[in-house]
Nucleic acid binder design. Structure first.
Lengths: 334, 334
DNA sequence: CGTGAATTTGAAAGCGATTTCTTTTTCATT
DNA sequence: AATGAAAAAGAAATCGCTTTCAAATTCACG
């Protein structure tokens, strides 16, 4: 460790001013005579000085850090949201710091505490399943934004997609194409998004006067393999359907593969609709009709909202329109 | 801001000991009588005390933070590597902090400086294109690990995949299936991985005594759309081929779509091989034969290596075997 | 019991900034 | 030129924790 740390004192000495003055030009906190300011700036550049963020944080109270609590690294949708946050923060002076909650309340709680210990100036929660009242505490202590999860009463501090309405829309699209036997591949049973999408599916059926048939619902867990299995089980139980609505794209891909294996054509024999519009859905064959969930934009909105919160600016609600990416995996029912 | 910060002093007072003692039980830095230790621990729990990480960092020198320099958030491969790092760090007491380089040397340099200013205890670079000598500087100043990029002389501090050999292997597989007219969809021209894969492709051809035909090489930029375009241009120029080796899976997906549009069957008419083995390649139709690049494992290895570095432990080299995920997108050449 | 060594504890000095409070300069104005 | 107000610069306190160093306990053994 030969790294002799360059401190504000070194700069001050070399520029013939006091620490205070250096600090002032560093933060633009109060006027400094132009000549000195220049001298300081030049010295800093010359010595390639980087102020110690810890010392600043300790003294000033601001860490210029934003904590991000993720839940399941590896899921395309949540990853995209996270990427959006990173993107949205990229221009600012804030650095993102991560802690993973793994969808386990215990772990999520610890993650939040770690971040608070690190003096983050704000916290962005990506999904998660901590109780609402618990989050209320966090929100009280720290500027907080929740994204990809619906929370009552959070207003613009919660950026969520209307899963129920979107699922309904998707199924209505299928119904509009003449389908009446529509199977559904559910997501994780306890996951609120999965529940909302399932309810949306039922709502659409009901609206169209199609009786709900539990035999047409297969359970999955949001990943590709479970989509394969779902279709297998649907077929095994002798269900007959002309369309499938999967609770996310990954399961739709799995379903598509299972159909392919059976020689069932998409969309000629069975139509398929997914949910998320992850980048790949444009390139599968046939390109997948799916609910466009603007994951990256949601993340960016969360970042922007946080930046606003931190400057006591108004946080404006963002509109997340429900939109179907209509492609080629849906055909009219013969 | 009513959040009255709880300090070590509060704990000390309440537990009837000195700050020093509290610090000692906090860090286990020197023995403390059991009765006091318990009293301190209880008080900390009772008050839900979180030590201020900044103060610790300032005083102790260690930030317990690891800086991660990413390059292009949004690319499945690099994202997987990043996820691996996050995973590998999850158990430890270190928190990951991010800065994005966007493949722009200027920005990457700034990202590294930001991280150093934040007193990170180590830096993990995911890809990147800063000059080797510049990185050497970083490595001198800070424990550094580079992943997903080959750097001469870095030994186990560099976790990279042999792109050349893997590409060669992939093309040899195609040749083994009887193909002699093998097209290649390149990645970004200046990207060293793209170059290595292209060279590997050429090497395989040469080995098999197949003359290299520049007409069979189409350029792409690693994303899906460019795969579509590449196939279009190949066809437009009247190239004839029975197989395609794409420099990554995304382009392979795009190529597969373009072929689908033209009614060209995979693998019956044209065989297809990708590179990366991203999760989705298992669920496209037909499942894609591709080079298995253990992205997540590479990230985990980087994290593990960093943790070792930080404890002055031996950093063991990790073996990244070249392996083909053989699936159904390749058929024997008729 | 007494004594020196070993073990625990506490007091105080930093760590590298920010910020308040003075002191010194600078500048109008009379 | 003299004077007071405004502006700029510096000194010193502070942020919350670690760590060195010295003081206080505890302990073992003669």
């Amino acid at each position: 460790m030969t790294r002799k740390t360059l401190t504000i004192e070194d700069i001050a000495r070399k520029a013939n001013v006091s620490k205070s003055t250096v600090s002032r030009v560093l933060n633009n906190s109060s006027p400094v005579k132009e000549s000195k300011r220049l001298a300081v700036i030049r010295t800093m550049e010359q010595l390639d000085y980087r102020p110690n963020a810890f010392a600043r944080g300790l003294a000033g109270g601001l860490s210029m850090t934003i904590g991000i609590v993720t839940q399941n690294i590896g899921s395309p949708f949540y990853d995209s949201v996270t990427q959006g946050i990173l993107k949205g923060l990229a221009g600012s002076d804030y650095s993102p710091i991560f802690a993973d909650g793994r969808w386990i309340p215990e772990v999520e709680r610890a993650a939040i505490k770690t971040l608070i210990g690190r003096q983050v100036d704000g916290i962005i929660l990506v999904g998660g399943n901590l109780q609402a009242n618990e989050l209320e505490e966090v929100r009280k202590a720290e500027p907080t934004i929740v994204v990809a999860r619906h929370l009552e009463g959070w207003g613009p501090q919660c950026i969520a997609f209307d899963n129920h309405a979107a699922a309904r829309e998707a199924v209505l699209h299928l119904i509009g194409a003449g389908h009446r036997s529509i199977a559904h591949i559910r997501g994780i049973k306890t996951h609120e998004d999965a529940i909302a999408r399932f309810e949306g599916y039922r709502a659409a059926l009901e609206e169209a006067g199609i009786p709900f048939d539990p035999e047409l619902v297969a359970s999955g867990n949001f990943n590709g393999q479970s989509g394969v299995l779902a279709v297998e089980s649907l077929i095994a139980r002798g269900a007959s359907f002309t369309a499938i609505f999967a609770a996310n794209d990954e399961m739709a891909f799995g379903a598509r593969l299972a159909l392919f294996r059976r020689g069932i054509r998409v969309p000629d024999d069975v139509s398929l609709v997914g949910f998320d519009d992850q980048p790949n859905s444009l390139y599968v064959t046939p390109p997948l009709t799916t609910v466009r969930q603007p994951a990256v934009a949601m993340g960016e909105a969360a970042a922007a909202g946080m930046l606003n919160l931190l400057q006591n600016r108004e946080v404006t609600a963002i509109d997340l329109p429900i939109e179907l990416a209509i492609r080629e995996s849906v055909a009219f029912c013969r």
